[in-house]
């Protein structure tokens, strides 16, 4: 048993596709028309056969109150591992994404949290720079 697909709810699939591919660098894996929406998944180019992220329409009435409550408290629904969270903070900030938490050392890692503009907060994680790791 293994995880193959997980999802984030997005308010607009076209916008989400732009954010997750052009800004974050994911690649489309499946894009199947499905009525007014699409079965739309993306994968990391670093792991093209790895977990697919389904960009799922947020139509269900339970989704918005749920996601809004988590977002208000700054709670991310997705964690992405990167080489350098500080560098990504600078790059994505310059591209116009809002960070609710700047890169912050947390024990052996550095974390940051940004808004994907589609309804979700996303956490970035990288290993703390060598020498900075706390005991």
């Amino acid at each position: 048993m293994k995880v193959t697909i997980t999802s984030v709810f997005v308010d607009d699939q076209a916008k989400a596709l732009d954010v997750y591919t052009r800004l974050l660098g994911f690649q489309v894996r499946q894009d199947v028309p499905l009525g007014e929406h699409r079965w739309l998944t993306v994968v990391s180019p670093e792991d093209p056969d790895g977990v697919e992220l389904l960009l799922e329409p947020d139509e269900h009435p339970a989704v918005r109150p749920f996601v809004d409550a988590l977002t208000a408290d700054g709670i991310p629904g997705l964690v992405l591992t990167v080489d350098d969270a500080a560098a990504e903070h600078e790059r994505l900030g310059a591209l116009g994404l809002t960070f609710t938490q700047p890169p912050t050392p947390m024990g052996p890692v550095v974390t940051a949290v940004f808004d994907d503009t589609c309804g979700n907060l996303v956490q970035l994680v990288s290993a703390a720079p060598a020498g900075d790791a706390q005991p």
Binding site: D73, G74, I75, P76, T100, Q101, T104, M106, T111, V113, L121
Partner: peptide, 8 residues
């Protein structure tokens, strides 16, 4: 800071 950041 958000609640999440403070918890972290």
């Amino acid at each position: 800071q958000t609640l999440f950041e403070l918890c972290t």
